[in-house]
């Protein structure tokens, strides 16, 4: 792990967003009111988790304009910066689970379970979108661990209950000591949804050997090995990339960089 400027930038961004939510929820400053499921930025710009909005729409057959606008805005944003930029730069659960993985490496934990295949998250995504149509209940949003975490952190203390922390704690342990392919890569339906958005997003991590050397061990640095394959094979990361910038921090120079997505190049 190289702690370069991208590492600090994205951790700072994630903490800033979380901080703004907490400050806005607990003071009179209306900067970013709400939470990651839906919010109002500076009293004007609505944001809505598009996957959550879809579930609500499928369950109830309607959604008010503000939430629709928010979902469109958020989708448009990630169509530009890369679908899973949310995972790398914003997601509060990723902060916790990255910490679990860091600890796991620190203590040289041997994880006994391979984990669920990265394909699993797509099936989960499909299921949580079909179920609301059948049962009229948007069930996943009750138990979405990302939501459970940020609801507890942002609005916690208002409601009392330990179940939220038990769910987050279980995932922490799963990531820390159980599965090599953890929650984000294997199971998270939002990661699946954002990967699909990322397939057509504008900005990607690109590589250019004419600008400098690309280290051979670059794959070891990447927290999302599917993404780096794109770098190695096609000089541009796949949509699994969380735009975390670990590879850019590592090379230091400009041989790997954020840029406009290239057309796939066949070697």
């Amino acid at each position: 792990m190289t702690y370069g400027k991208w590492w600090f930038s994205r951790r700072a961004t994630a903490l800033l967003v979380l901080g703004l939510f907490i400050v806005s929820a607990r003071s009179d400053y209306n900067i970013l009111v709400g939470n990651y499921s839906g919010s109002l930025f500076l009293g004007v710009i609505p944001t809505t988790d598009p996957l959550s909005a879809l579930q609500s729409f499928f369950a109830t057959g309607g959604l008010y304009t503000t939430a629709v606008n928010g979902a469109v805005l958020v989708t448009a944003f990630y169509l530009i910066v890369g679908g899973r930029a949310f995972c790398g730069w914003v997601c509060p659960l990723a902060l916790v689970l990255d910490f679990a993985n860091w600890l796991s490496k620190k203590f040289h934990i041997r994880k006994p379970f391979q984990g669920f295949s990265p394909a699993t998250k797509y099936y989960i995504m499909v299921i949580i979108l079909i179920v609301p149509i059948i049962t009229a209940v948007a069930i996943y949003e009750f138990y979405n661990p990302i939501s459970i975490l940020h609801r507890a952190v942002i609005f916690g203390g208002i409601g009392v209950g330990m179940v939220s922390w038990l769910i987050v704690g279980t995932l922490f342990l799963y990531e820390f000591a159980v599965a090599r392919i953890g929650w984000c890569r294997g199971l998270c339906p939002l990661a699946a949804f954002l990967t699909l958005i990322g397939k057509v997003s504008l900005i990607r991590v690109n590589a250019d050997e004419s600008r400098g050397e690309i280290p051979g061990n670059i794959a070891e640095l990447c927290p999302e090995p599917n993404a780096i394959i794109g770098i190695i094979d096609n000089r541009t990361a796949t949509s699994d990339c969380t735009m975390c910038g670990a590879c850019i921090d590592r090379v230091g120079g400009s041989s790997i960089f954020f840029g406009i997505r290239r057309k796939k190049q066949k070697l």
């Binding site: 839906g38 809505t48 988790d49 959550s52 909005a53 369950a59 609301p132 209940v137």
Partner: peptide
């Protein structure tokens, strides 16, 4: 809205709580 519709239409964002 009616309870069953309400719990799914609600996106659990907490903006009403803050308001």
């Amino acid at each position: 809205l009616a309870e069953m519709k309400f719990i799914s239409r609600c996106i659990k964002c907490g903006q009403c709580i803050r308001s």
